[in-house]
Amino acid sequence: MNLASGSTTKVSLVVSDLSGGGAVRAFLLAQVLKKLKYQVEVVGFQFGRELYAAPPDGIVVRSVPGNNYPQVLKSASQLLKKIDGDIIYAVKPKPTSFGLSLLKKLQTRRPVILDMDDWELSWHGGDDWNYHPSLQQLYRDLLKENGQLRHPDHALYVKWTEGLVARADAVTIDTQFLKNRFGGVYLPNGKDTDLFSPHPYNPDATRKQYGLSDYKVLMFPGAPRPHKGVEDVLVALDQLNDPTLRLVIIGGNPYDNYDDTLIERWGRWIIKLPKQPVEKMPEIVSAAHVVVVPQRDTLTAQAQFPLKLTDGMAMAKPILSTCVGDIPDILNHTGYLVAPNSPDQLAAKIQWIFQNFEEAIDRGLQARKRCVELYSVDAMATILSNVIATL
């Protein structure tokens, strides 16, 4: 079988947790593979009650309930049977995705591609993280009902799985940080620029539809988390003290009560809209005057390609972001950059953008052009086709 030919070739995208953020990258990869005419199916554990994100139209998702050890072994057996693609594409180097994919490779000799869009250990301190328990702690972690080592994606297991990256037949990554650390082929965190297009929308009408007509809308179209710098924007809004400014957040953070903490302190600046399917997001982003992606300078942020950058770029919006990781190279002067962790600079730049809004609009149009050329699903498809051709 010619794996590079598509049409009759099936790809199984294996996700560690469909109720977690990895599902978003998996759905994007599924769109790219469908563009290449492959049959695509997303399979994975689901540790939460619902999917993290609704799949795009036409993407089949098959899940099994996620559990801790030892119950997860039964679930893993069920999931292995669902991984039936001619190509196995593991999303994230976790035991519940890449580990299972390597096991399926041993059984079937089917090639495995590994995709990395995060450095998973960065969430635990990176290279400084170690697990050196006392015997008593090891006993608790292994045998107690909620023991840490009973979670199938504990950092210790992830560290072991990262050591197996070379066992993949190909590796795709989305940042220079990950390339430097693991190698692989650069595959950006792109966007369907046909879906995310400003042309069908009237921003004034959309703002009226969502009750935003009275405001200059700064939009963060993702899930706020501490490393994403939303607090810095809110401190900047305190400094500006302009009653016409609002920060609009879409969907919020599904992991904890971080949103509530932000709203409790800065509620007068925040408008929170409900979680939306991907097909609805272009309309909502069209309501923004400025898209803000204020990443802080952390290990986690350095290893990420913020997907919300391409939300703003594809929709031709002025983008305000920070000099972290690949962000300056992604924007390449088509957006506005300040130093990370700098509310003062954010405040000054927000004020400048609205005072020079015609220039900001022009820069947004340049961002759209750059996104179509380098970060579209079509651009990703060309790269991924070449990766599959090497299998």
Rank of each mutant, 00 (worst) to 15 (best):
N2S: 06
S12E: 04
L18V: 02
G20R: 10
A23P: 07
R25C: 02
K34F: 00
Q39M: 08
V40N: 05
V40D: 04
V40C: 05
V42I: 13
G44T: 00
R49W: 02
R49Q: 11
I59E: 05
V60H: 07
P65E: 09
Q71L: 14
K74M: 01
K74Q: 01
A76Y: 03
K82M: 15
D84H: 13
I87Q: 04
P93W: 02
P95I: 03
S101Q: 08
L103H: 13
P111C: 08
D118N: 03
W119L: 08
D127H: 14
L142H: 06
D153T: 15
Y157D: 12
T161P: 06
G163C: 04
V171G: 03
T172N: 07
I173S: 03
F177A: 15
N180H: 14
R181H: 12
P188Y: 02
N189D: 07
G190A: 06
S197M: 03
D204N: 14
D204I: 13
T206H: 10
S213Q: 15
P221T: 12
H227K: 08
K228Q: 03
L245Q: 07
N253G: 06
R265A: 01
W266D: 02
W266P: 00
W269E: 03
Q276M: 12
Q276C: 07
E279K: 09
K280L: 07
A288P: 08
A288K: 07
H289V: 02
V291R: 06
V293D: 01
D297N: 15
A301P: 09
A303P: 08
A303Q: 00
T310G: 00
A314K: 00
M315W: 01
G325Q: 13
T334M: 11
G335N: 07
L337I: 03
A339G: 08
P340C: 05
N341L: 11
S342N: 15
D344M: 06
Q345K: 13
L346E: 04
K349E: 13
I350M: 12
W352E: 15
Q355K: 15
I361G: 00
R363F: 00
R370W: 08
R370S: 12
E373P: 04
T382E: 07
N386L: 09
I388R: 01
